[in-house]
Design a binder for these strands. Structure first.
Lengths: 124, 124
DNA sequence: CTTGACCTTCACATGGGTGTGATAGTCAGA
DNA sequence: TCTGACTATCACACCCATGTGAAGGTCAAG
């Protein structure tokens, strides 16, 4: 598919898709036109990129961990790079931290909203 | 405490503490000097701000939800503002999304790291 | 009284993600 | 063949969180 369709499917503007390419996160083929041609599996990839970006993770890190986030992980394991491993472990630990942090916030918001609702029900 | 001590305790540079104040996220008292004087409870608050900021949440949103993240939530419920409620629900839902997303990534990283380790153990 | 560690404000810079507009090529359909 | 909806590249500009440095005030300790 071309850039417009991918943009629609992922809700990521073409401008950003080109930017991700510039950052090495996606590498679409080119048609004879020069038009970018995206494979279907990139839809998922772009969504993943957006999620990570929204979470404040910079493209540099995203580029490093993205190949490791596929469900078919068995494929890509062939270089026992200890540096890569360290970085993955680091990001893994950060994920755990983030989860704990968000769970707290989720619960706190939950409580607060409930309290609001109860106050509204009572106060009426 | 003064800004330097708070900076040490929270690992947030003074520059940023002043910035948070400018954004209305913390409002320290002032000594006769003009020096900022922070209450102890702000340590926690600043840590929370950092967490949210690291998670890619802009100061505008943080300012809105911060008062609702305290453990003593019962105190602050007195204005049944439907707009505020909507925003809180929205942020609450986003927290849930984020958690799910991070859990996926955590698991994927976990799997990948395990695979690396197994490959290394076998390949040796 | 001076030094040094703190604090103040102000201002300018930077980096990353994003918006926007200019200019131009491609191509399907009326 | 021309129009309109795509696409391309390039460039400038923005927002926001941060860094950094200048110029100066406060205050405790030597």
């Amino acid at each position: 598919m071309r850039i417009g369709e991918l943009a629609r499917k992922t809700d990521v503007p073409p401008r950003m898709l080109r930017y991700y390419e510039e950052q090495g996160l996606v590498t679409p083929r080119r048609l004879d036109n020069g038009y970018r041609e995206y494979d279907e599996y990139l839809v998922d990839r772009v969504r993943k990129i957006r999620g990570l970006l929204d979470a404040g993770i910079p493209t540099r890190i995203i580029g490093a961990i993205l190949p490791c986030l596929g469900q078919t992980s068995a494929i890509v394991v062939d270089d026992p790079d200890p540096e890569l491993r360290a970085m993955l472990v680091e990001q893994h630990d950060k994920m755990i931290e983030r989860i704990a942090f968000f769970e707290q916030n989720r619960d706190a918001l939950s409580r607060y909203i409930d309290a609001m609702d109860r106050a509204a029900a009572t106060g009426d």
